[in-house]
Simulated assay, not measured.
Amino acid sequence: MATATPIEPERVKTVIDHTSRIQPLVCASKRGEENDELNSPLFVTVENMTGNIYIADCLNHCVKVFDSTAKYIFKFGDSRGEGKMSYPISLFICMSRILISHNHGILNYNLDGEFISRIGKPGKGEFEFYNPCVMVMNESNDDIYICDYSNNRVQILSKDFIFKSLFGSFTHPLDVKLSKEYIYVLDESNPCIHLFNHNHILQKSVISLGPGNQVLNPYSFSIDNSNNILIADYASNSISIFNPEFQSIHNIPVSEHPTSVTVDYHDRVIVVCEHTVNCLQLF
């Protein structure tokens, strides 16, 4: 079934108050291989037109899709051939496509779960990847930024998946986000978030790691509509929230070991947790 290119509504800037988020509104918690069960979910994203939630279900080797109330809809991931999905790590929706990073490559599917193409190949050169993880699109030119984790860099592709450039000499980049002013890269370094301008020149590094500091073990992060930064802090079992000046403003307790956090168009905070609970939580 063909998927029409969604036209996302213009989002009006609001002031978001996270301090009232203490208990999840919805918690879908099941571990296993059945349709509505998860086994080491690592990343979550939302398709804003439908509100559907897409989860990289790593040890089930597939992507599972839930509606906005956390009710299971369908799953996808070819078991063989070019579209074979093996240990999916992260996913990103761009226009009518969903890109999934797994092993040493990137898979291109449509939103109905039909395989389209494979992007790049394993290696250390241009358009080659070694444990790619989080991806994001630059809305001004549709360039795609990809954290090339074990190659310690960020690669940039055009919307047609043509290599354009790369930057950084990171410890291990985990996540990347964009604003009009900055490129934010979450790295396994201390400080852990690095802010680059759009010429890829480092401007500053923020957020300290370790006991007694701001976060313990960040896995991923999101930037909400008020430019607050939400970090999935794996070791502290919480979502650590910072204002645009990187001052700590709130911590949302979650079930156990959050690996991914995002904010949808209704300003709900959506979290997946792995390890023993393997759950999806909506705040």
Rank of each mutant, 00 (worst) to 15 (best):
I89F: 00
T5C: 01
G105Y: 09
Q203V: 01
T276E: 13
C27S: 07
T262M: 14
D143Q: 03
S140R: 11
E256A: 09
V206Q: 05
N152S: 10
S117H: 10
I16M: 01
D143I: 01
V215K: 05
S96H: 08
T276S: 12
G120C: 10
H266F: 11
D17G: 04
N225C: 07
N225K: 03
N228S: 08
P9H: 07
P253S: 15
S226K: 04
D78N: 02
P122S: 10
H200S: 02
E139G: 07
E274R: 12
Q247K: 15
H250E: 12
I16L: 12
S117C: 09
S208F: 02
D233F: 01
L107F: 00
K71L: 02
E33H: 13
L216G: 00
K13F: 08
Q247C: 14
Q155A: 03
V277Y: 07
F283E: 04
E274F: 01
S205F: 01
V271S: 07
C273R: 07
D160W: 05
S179M: 13
D78L: 01
L282G: 04
Y109M: 03
I144A: 11
R11N: 14
L42C: 10
I241A: 10
V12A: 06
H257R: 14
L282C: 04
H61Q: 06
F170H: 10
S226P: 05
S79L: 02
H257L: 11
S165W: 11
L178G: 06
S140Y: 07
I162E: 15
F127S: 12
I116P: 04
I231K: 06
P132Q: 09
D143G: 02
M49S: 15
K159W: 06
L25F: 10
S240H: 06
E47N: 15
V134T: 11
D148K: 10
Y149E: 13
N152A: 08
D233A: 13
L282I: 15
I239G: 11
G81L: 03
Q23K: 13
C147I: 04
K204W: 00
S205L: 09
D267M: 07
I106C: 04
N151Q: 00
A232I: 03
S158I: 09
L209V: 00
M95F: 00
Y130W: 10
I229W: 01
P41C: 07
S90T: 13
I162K: 15
E181Q: 15
G123V: 12
D160S: 12
L166R: 15
R153I: 06
D67I: 03
I183V: 15
L166D: 15
T50L: 11
P132D: 10
N237A: 14
P258E: 07
N228T: 01
A28Q: 15
N138Y: 00
Q281E: 15
N213M: 11
E188L: 14
R268C: 13
N228H: 07
S96C: 06
V271D: 09
I252S: 12
N48M: 14
I223K: 08
G168D: 00
F283L: 03
C58G: 06
E188K: 14
L91V: 03
L157V: 09
N217V: 00
I223A: 11
F246C: 08
N278L: 08
I156F: 04
L25W: 05
D78P: 03
R268W: 06
N110W: 06
T50C: 09
V277M: 11
F242M: 04
F76T: 08
S101K: 05
K180H: 13
K177P: 00
